[in-house]
Computed example of a mutant assay.
Amino acid sequence: MKKVFVKNSSGVLKKVLMCRPTFLKAVPINEIARKWQDVGLDVEIMEKEHRELVKAFEDNGVEVVMVEADSRRGNSVFSRDFGGCIREGYILGRFKEPVRFLERDVYEEKMKELNIPKVAECKNGLFEGGDFTFLDNDTLAIGIVERSNEEGIEEIRKSLSKYGYKVIEVPCDKKYLHLDLCFNLVDEKLAVAYRDGLPETFLKVLDEKGIATISITEECVFKHGCNLQSIGDKRVISLKSNGYVNEELRKRGFKVIELDITEILKAGGGPHCMTFPLSRL
Rank of each mutant, 00 (worst) to 15 (best):
D260W: 13
D81A: 08
S161F: 09
E68G: 07
V205W: 09
I91P: 04
K204D: 06
K15P: 00
I116G: 05
M111L: 15
A193D: 01
N75Q: 09
I257T: 07
L177V: 12
L160E: 01
F78K: 07
L53I: 06
R72V: 02
R80K: 15
S148R: 05
L41Y: 13
T133S: 13
N149I: 01
G40N: 05
S230P: 10
M46R: 09
V54Y: 13
L160F: 10
M46T: 06
S161K: 15
L17G: 11
A191D: 00
L249R: 11
I32L: 08
A267L: 05
E103W: 12
F5C: 06
M1T: 11
C85D: 00
P117I: 07
K255Y: 09
N184F: 08
R280V: 05
G125F: 08
H178C: 01
F57I: 03
F276M: 12
F95K: 02
L190K: 06
V205F: 11
M66P: 01
A120C: 03
G130K: 10
D70V: 02
F254D: 01
N227D: 08
I91A: 09
V145D: 02
K251T: 05
L228W: 12
S148Q: 02
T133E: 02
F183T: 00
R280S: 08
L181G: 08
R94H: 14
E208Q: 13
D131K: 10
H272L: 11
Y165V: 05
I231T: 09
F134H: 12
K266R: 15
L185Q: 12
E108G: 07
K7G: 01
P117N: 10
E49C: 13
L179T: 02
K14M: 02
